[in-house]
């Protein structure tokens, strides 16, 4: 217990970062499940949501800004899909992926142009930014709110997928793209909805993430995006619970390793230097043991 007490701040930040990765990872995994596309622009949509918040909050109050940012990010996700992916529906899968990489760089460079390359300070959101003390570990309210909010959102999403018409359509499309089209499912609508849900969750994640790490740069979407993608693969790409659990594991591992000197009682500076290396090595081990990821479906060859 004393051990837990002493190292509480590592676990807290691990859980909170894990929750933020989870919200981004869902966007990756859903799009992959339906389109078999790795949407590289997703991390940059997350970054754009952060920048929108920075610019909008300088003139508008938070009660308007927050819903507006959520709305605009959803719109951004929708537009990206319509402009860059929909015209390539019948093209080889690689072309769509290249298009995704193109969108990613477009967003990064547009952000570079607007910000002038400088880091923007994320606004302090009342309540979420407040400091609180939990069992002698000082942290922000957002750290505590994140895991709960993530779980609530994931439950809502699962309900949506299990019990609504659009959710059923999504499941059908992810099972078999062409057959579901023949069955009268409006495929473009389903895909748009998927992108919109992904973007919405990414913008919630950006709200939580940047409240904790309050600086937005054109590349600040890159690392969280990559880690979330890794989490999605780790949990078995295409599976929503897999992505969420994978993200929590990655987030917690990362912070435990950073605090290795204190948690494992072995002093040395290597812990923080190689924290990312350890995380990714862990990923390799899991994938070697279980190639489809934790909850991945087995690939069935259709004859």
């Amino acid at each position: 217990m004393e051990f837990f007490h002493q190292n509480l701040s590592y676990f807290l930040s691990g859980i909170s970062v894990g929750g933020q990765y989870a919200l981004i990872a869902i966007g990756y995994t859903m799009v992959y499940g339906i389109l078999r596309l790795i949407n590289f622009a997703h991390g940059d949509v997350f970054m754009c949501a952060g920048l929108m918040m920075v610019y909008l909050s300088s003139t508008l109050p938070f009660t308007i800004t927050i819903p507006l940012v959520l709305l605009l990010t959803v719109l951004l996700g929708f537009v990206i899909e319509r402009v860059a992916y929909m015209p390539l529906r019948s093209a080889p899968r690689m072309s769509v992926m290249i298009s995704a990489i193109g969108v990613s760089y477009l967003l990064q460079n547009a952000a570079l142009y607007f910000t002038g390359g400088l880091a923007k300070v994320y606004p302090e959101i009342p309540f979420l930014s407040n400091s609180i003390v939990i069992w002698d570990a000082t942290t922000r309210v957002v750290t505590i709110v994140t895991p709960f909010l993530t779980v609530v959102l994931v439950i809502l999403l699962t309900l949506l997928i299990k019990h609504t018409k659009i959710g059923m359509a999504m499941r059908a499309v992810s099972r078999d793209f062409e057959t579901s089209q023949l069955m009268g499912i409006k495929i473009n609508r389903v895909i748009s909805t998927t992108f919109m849900i992904g973007s919405l969750l990414a913008s919630v994640a950006s709200l939580l993430y940047f409240t904790n790490y309050a600086s937005v740069t054109p590349t600040s979407g890159a690392m969280p995006g990559l880690k979330a993608f890794v989490a999605a693969v780790f949990g078995g790409i295409g599976s929503i619970p897999g992505a969420v659990i994978g993200a929590f594991i990655i987030g917690i591992c990362e912070n435990i390793i950073k605090g290795g000197a204190s948690i494992f009682g072995i002093p040395g500076s290597g812990w923080t230097t190689f924290s990312d290396a350890f995380t990714f090595a862990f990923l390799i081990v899991i994938l070697v043991v279980k190639p489809t990821g934790l909850f991945g479906e087995k690939a069935v060859d259709k004859v």
């Binding site: 701040s9 790490y213 890159a222 204190s262 923080t272």
Partner: peptide
């Protein structure tokens, strides 16, 4: 200690300093 490029989570480093 050192932190890698692209890192924006310094909470654990700060905890290390305190601990």
């Amino acid at each position: 200690e050192t932190f890698p490029e692209g890192n924006s989570d310094f909470t654990s480093y700060i905890a290390n300093a305190k601990n």
